[in-house]
């Protein structure tokens, strides 16, 4: 649906995007992730035909962004960062104006506006001036605007930034719902958000694609080895000695235990996902007379992946 090839963008002499390539399949919800200033918004501005690329191509639904920008714009519902709106207009009036310039046929206009207003919980504020609305409501007006022409593709730049936790949840649910019949590209730097709503993730850093993968295969990790965490009630050095005798365990190391007495020891180790190493450890602990308080597999979180590919910069967790 969206196909980006070697997109490069210079702002004056600053390289903002460096040969960015990715594909978004029809029906996918793709999370566009990266630290601030990584190039997320720039990429979105190029795909939506607001800014031209310095080099490279992008196609939206088979239309080139340079050759047929109007066709591209017709197929995209875009919500820019911070949702700029005409604050003196009323909600309904604004959506009606947007529907007109987005070529929604006159006959369908009223029905479309009613529909998006109810879907974005705006019906009860439709006669209110946008300037008097809270940030959360403005965000919803932006979403309603993106949806008003019923585009195939939605591009949302940080749709949940600045919202309270309740509104964040509502917007996430809405985006997820929209993903059922739309192709969605959503940028954010809130990692759990991506885990909640997206099928695929693209991580961008310093203007380059750092990684792209489906969320499912990300969770599994690239290697077959997974990390385990073990907490045992027993003398640390002896447990350590016993653990080293278990076959198939690597990278064993002590792990501080936060809640527990002096007699509780914590360890992390790696072992094959399949192969029974964890079961063997549990059996060994029991036969040695130590009770196992915790033994679990630590799935790779998106945060782990993000820190791996993006490096030192710490991501924001919600």
């Amino acid at each position: 649906m969206i196909s980006v090839k070697n997109l490069t963008k210079y702002y004056a002499d600053n390289l903002a995007l460096d040969r960015v390539s990715f594909e978004v399949e029809a029906g996918d919800i793709v999370g566009f992730l990266g630290p601030n200033g990584a190039g997320k918004s720039t990429t979105m501005k190029i795909i939506t035909c607001f800014l031209p690329p310095s080099a490279g191509r992008a196609k939206v639904a088979e239309y080139d962004i340079i050759d047929s920008p109007m066709e591209v714009r017709r197929r995209i519902g875009y919500m820019p960062e911070n949702v700029p709106l005409y604050t003196e207009m009323r909600v309904r009036e604004y959506l009606s104006f947007r529907a007109k310039i987005k070529d929604v046929p006159r006959k369908e206009r009223t029905a479309r506006i009613e529909q998006v207003m109810s879907r974005c919980w705006l019906t009860h504020v439709q006669r209110q001036t946008i300037g008097t609305l809270s940030k959360g409501y403005r965000q919803r007006v932006g979403l309603a605007d993106a949806m008003v022409s019923d585009p195939e593709i939605l591009i949302l730049d940080e749709p949940t930034i600045g919202l309270d936790p309740n509104q964040v949840r509502q917007v996430r649910e809405l985006v997820k719902e929209l993903g059922q019949d739309h192709t969605v590209l959503v940028s954010t730097h809130i990692l759990p958000e991506v885990e909640m709503i997206c099928d695929r993730v693209i991580i961008i850093n310093n203007g380059r694609i750092a990684m792209q993968d489906s969320l499912a295969s990300l969770r599994k990790g690239s290697s077959k080895h997974v990390e385990y965490y073990l907490e045992v009630k027993g003398p640390a050095d002896e447990v350590d000695r016993v653990l080293r005798t278990v076959e198939g365990i690597t990278e064993l190391s002590a792990h501080p235990v936060h809640h527990g007495g002096d007699d509780v020891a914590g360890f992390t180790f790696k072992a094959a996902r399949e192969g029974g190493a964890a079961e063997a450890v549990a059996a060994k602990m029991v036969t040695s007379g130590w009770s196992v308080r915790e033994l679990r597999r630590r799935e790779r979180t998106l945060e782990d992946v993000f820190v791996e590919v993006v490096g030192r910069e710490l991501p924001v967790s919600a």
């Binding site: 939506t48 109007m70 714009r73 875009y78 820019p80 700029p84 709106l85 947007r98 987005k102 070529d103």
Partner: peptide, 14 residues
């Protein structure tokens, strides 16, 4: 200044 130009120029208007 307010950024609404981005909303305008990403709608299908010349």
């Amino acid at each position: 200044r307010s950024g609404t130009i981005e909303m305008l120029m990403t709608a299908p208007v010349a």
